[in-house]
Design a protein around this nucleic acid. Sequence first.
DNA 1: AGCCAGTCTTGTCACTGTCAAGTTCTGGGA
DNA 2: TCCCAGAACTTGACAGTGACAAGACTGGCT
Lengths: 197, 197
Amino acid sequence: MPADRYHHGALRRAVLDAAVEAISESGPSALSLRDLARRAGVSHAGPAHHFGSKEGVFTALAAEGFTMLAEELETVSSGSMAELGVAYVRFGLQHRAHFEVMFRPELYDAEDPSVAEPRERTWSSLSGSARVATTYADQVSSEVTELGAWALVHGFAMLAASGAIEADSPDEVAALVRGAASMMFREPNGAASPREH
Amino acid sequence: MPADRYHHGALRRAVLDAAVEAISESGPSALSLRDLARRAGVSHAGPAHHFGSKEGVFTALAAEGFTMLAEELETVSSGSMAELGVAYVRFGLQHRAHFEVMFRPELYDAEDPSVAEPRERTWSSLSGSARVATTYADQVSSEVTELGAWALVHGFAMLAASGAIEADSPDEVAALVRGAASMMFREPNGAASPREH
DNA sequence: AGCCAGTCTTGTCACTGTCAAGTTCTGGGA
DNA sequence: TCCCAGAACTTGACAGTGACAAGACTGGCT
């Protein structure tokens, strides 16, 4: 459908894509509805009309992000904590724009069902795997292992996304995560573990 | 020094305190220089004049935050990874405003020496402790243990600060961190640190 | 006394998010 | 076929923002 029509017809997608682009360029705090409007070829109030407000745009982005992440984690059915962690971090690097919004809850409406539902799904993937991974050995409470798993993985993702970890490629970060996860959960250190000396 | 003088005399501190207050109320992205000016009892361009720009205010806050954190960690000389983690997370909860700015590098000039120097100090506290804690047992590379330690601790701090972890008191979070750290680093799970080495 | 570098103020600019009111389009009932 | 209710966008306006230039005040030095 041509861009010069009065009814854009695909404003929602156009705005969200523009938002991802804009956030990738200069972060979520620099996002401007008027800029989105320009990128989508629409009048300055178009985006706000469709999403209600700026917060509405962020909420839609967060919902989309959590949904993608949940699906991503659910395909990693190996049950290995290390592989789940790798997937989590990989997602953070691959969809940086979404990821940055998702974990900045003051930007959007975190209670909105479209966000809360997939967020619960990602959480149960992680905590479920952590529970299984430590059934064998430990006397630590399950709360500790589950939250510990999430914290480890989330910390890696945050540090990698903020540039605090200097790694040339996502694969390098993945190797780090794999190593740390198997260290914490005493999983067999698997094929991908770092080369031994 | 009276507040109605032309030369305020303590504008820097007044603005930074106002910033901490404002951020505690509604997050860093809602911070407005003009609001800081009002809180500090100063004309609308006062803060920007002193700090150069809004980024300058954030840079000063980040510098102050990393300095406090570095000193905090350096007093935890027990060498126990668990206790370092507790201190890290406790700092994040106690100085939430500073903490939120510190790990949002797009807000400030992360290369500024006033930020970079204390940031290096906190990092070496953490990685040093991680290195010691795993001297005994592991065959994992030191990069993995050091970054793993940081990620675990940072992840807890982020999740706690963003409200993702429901804990009634900082002490509860501290207990979680202690548990997860000793799980990962195989430290004795007791309250105190390993005295031998 | 005279000056001057710093400290803060005033005035203005382009830009932002939101809202109310207007315009244009779409689909479906008669 | 006509028409019209309402959805999809636009237009216009408002208060608020960060940045900058230019001015006003201050206190210390000679």
